[in-house]
Amino acid sequence: MSTQDGRAQAPKRATITDVARVAGVSRGAVSKVIRDAYGVSPAMRARVEEAIERLAYRPRTAARALRGSGFTIGLALPVFGNDFFSQIVLGVNETLAGTGYRFILAPDTSESSSSHTLDALADREVDGIIAVSPMVSTDWLENLARYVPVVVIGRHDMPAGYDTVNGDDAAGARLVMNHLLEQGHRRIVHLTGDYVQVAARPADPHSIRSVVFREMMLSAGLVPRQVTTAADPAAIVACVRDLLAGDEPPTAIFAAHDFLAIHALRVVATSEPRVAIAGYDGVDIASHPMISLTTVDQRGVEIGRTAATLLLERIKGRTTPARHVSTPELLIRRSTAPDGATG
Rank of each mutant, 00 (worst) to 15 (best):
F213S: 02
H179D: 01
R323I: 08
P205F: 08
E125P: 06
P328N: 04
D168T: 04
A278Q: 02
G340F: 05
G128C: 08
E111A: 12
Q197M: 14
R305H: 12
P273G: 11
L244R: 11
D194H: 13
S115W: 09
S113K: 11
T164H: 02
G39W: 02
S219I: 03
R67N: 05
V325N: 01
V22A: 12
L77Q: 06
Q226H: 12
P42E: 07
Y162M: 03
T251N: 01
P134G: 14
R124L: 14
P59Y: 01
S292D: 12
E329I: 02
G98V: 00
T3G: 13
W140S: 12
D281L: 02
N178K: 13
C239A: 10
V150A: 05
I208N: 03
R186F: 09
D297F: 00
I188Y: 09
S86M: 08
A20M: 04
T294A: 05
V132W: 06
V223C: 09
H116I: 14
R58F: 10
V296C: 05
E142K: 03
E313A: 06
G193V: 09
P205I: 06
L55P: 00
M177Q: 02
H116T: 15
A10C: 08
L105K: 08
A256K: 09
A8L: 10
V132G: 06
R225S: 07
I130R: 08
R323N: 10
D284F: 00
V22E: 14
V189D: 09
V25S: 08
P289C: 07
S137V: 07
L90S: 14
T320L: 15
D163V: 07
Y147W: 13
D83G: 00
S26H: 03
V92W: 09
P159R: 06
L90P: 06
S69V: 01
V283Q: 02
S210F: 04
S287H: 09
V132L: 12
F85P: 01
N93Y: 13
M135F: 11
D232E: 15
D123T: 13
E49N: 10
P338L: 11
R60W: 07
T320E: 15
L312K: 01
H116Y: 12
L293S: 06
V148D: 02
G91T: 09
A231H: 14
S2T: 15
E111V: 10
N82I: 00
T342C: 11
A231L: 15
S41F: 06
A234Y: 13
E248W: 07
I291L: 14
A252H: 07
A252G: 07
A276N: 07
